[in-house]
Design a protein around this nucleic acid. Sequence first.
RNA 1: GCCUCUGUAGUUUAGCGGUAGAAUGCCAGUCUCAUGAGCUGGAGGUCGCCGGUUCGACUCCGGCCAGAGGCACCA
Length: 482
Amino acid sequence: MKFYITTPIYYPNDIPHIGHAYTTIAADVLSRWNKSRGNNVFFLTGTDDHGKKIAQTAKKAGKTPKEFTDELIPKFKEAWKKLNIKYDRFIRTTDKDHEKVVSKILQLVYDKGDIYKGTYEGFYCTGCEAYYTEKDIENNRCPIHKTEVEKLKQESYFFKLSKYKKKLLDLYNKNPEFILPDSKRKEIISRVKKELRDLSISRTDFDWGIPLPFDKKHVCYVWFDALFNYYSATRTKGKEKFWPADVHLIGKDILWFHTVYWPAFLISAGIELPKTVFAHGWWTFDKEKISKSRGKVLNVDDLIEIAGVDSARYFLIRETPLGDDGDFSEKSLVNRNNNELANDLGNLLSRTLTLIEKNFNSEIPKSKSELTFDIGKIDKLMKNYELDKALAEIWKFVNKCNKYINDKKPWEVKDKEKLAKILYTLTDSLRIISILLHPFIPETSEKINKQLNIKLGTLKDCKPNLLKKTKIKKGEHLFKKI
RNA sequence: GCCUCUGUAGUUUAGCGGUAGAAUGCCAGUCUCAUGAGCUGGAGGUCGCCGGUUCGACUCCGGCCAGAGGCACCA
């Protein structure tokens, strides 16, 4: 089975922060889980380099848009490397293969009659050299310069979005899993029912974008260009089979574009639709909205600095259900690091290995495990995007092991065979735990395997008694307390 | 204004027709292999408010109150 998962392509006008990190980590967890399940996985992330804002920001910095984005994109790649994100391709909307696909589809949709020429009305501020929408302006004044804006018209091509109202509603109703969580689906349905206007998809006031193949004076405006990245990434050799996407993981702010524009474009172009668009929630920081101006920002480095990469990954996934909003605080991250990671898990490994060192000279003989484990429940949770509950379920097993030690009191057992059985049970369970945790906290999983001196297994190995005789190598603690 | 969601122990939350479970924090006990970790127990909730349906509601329906979010060309 193939599994194709995407993050949004991020807008590279600033360094990545907790929001970018969250989506990407969640996608990485799902990607790794599916790999472990034995699926053929394609995990795509990238950046949306085009658009007016990039053009403007670059100009202010005295750079061409290409120079500007070329400088910022390594920041994203570095961040993903630091966070142990294992993507399969990093796409940019300036990639040649992507531009080609978009151009081809624009022509296709145009030929079909779904794109027509019209006029776009906007409010222009000469200070900003930019258009604003009605919503942005206050009393006919620019939000930045507070000067009066001018209502201007510009020639623009429009996509016949209104035409697809019924087809979209059918889509939502027949495929309830197309929009998840379900509450978001309801929200979209009620909005689409109300009104669907045609969409302006081109601009002439800047040129940083893909030219329309049927009218080179115009460049394709953001969404048509950006959304198709998911598709164009599968138009290269060997990747074709990955379309349609199994899940587009996105932040709730861009749900409308992914569940209205995107399927409409695809229907028009005669392309198969993705199976699921999953909108996750937002993070607050100490209960306040993330805000640059108030200094309430958390970039990737801040996140890692507190307790390390795996603690950060663990916290973000464990703290809040994927569809809900969450609150980040250093205190709660530290609590989870100390209690769950260091005490429950780290200490479990530590006490087990010490017992083996003392009693068996670091070499644990093959025996029979006394603990059973059912992967089915966790796998089901993962399929339902309940990543937080899957982790909770894994921790139940961790705690079961801790209780098992206390009940069996291996430090009192004199009979070597009995003792071997107890310690084998624990080691074999830790082996299973390392497999289960690998998608969430890969570095820790590897550390466990290294100390047990075994190779990482996959989900099919999550059954007892597969551990062979092994010479353990006790190492450093998995997690430091803070 | 319209729409969606949420309101359960100090805090974070699960459950969703048969009178509430967990985690964390707090208190006590206990073991000693271990990162003063682990394990056991305790205190702590009239499940936002008011009605209705029902033999019976935290769970369904209606209303109210409080909070959060969305309302398109802005990533």
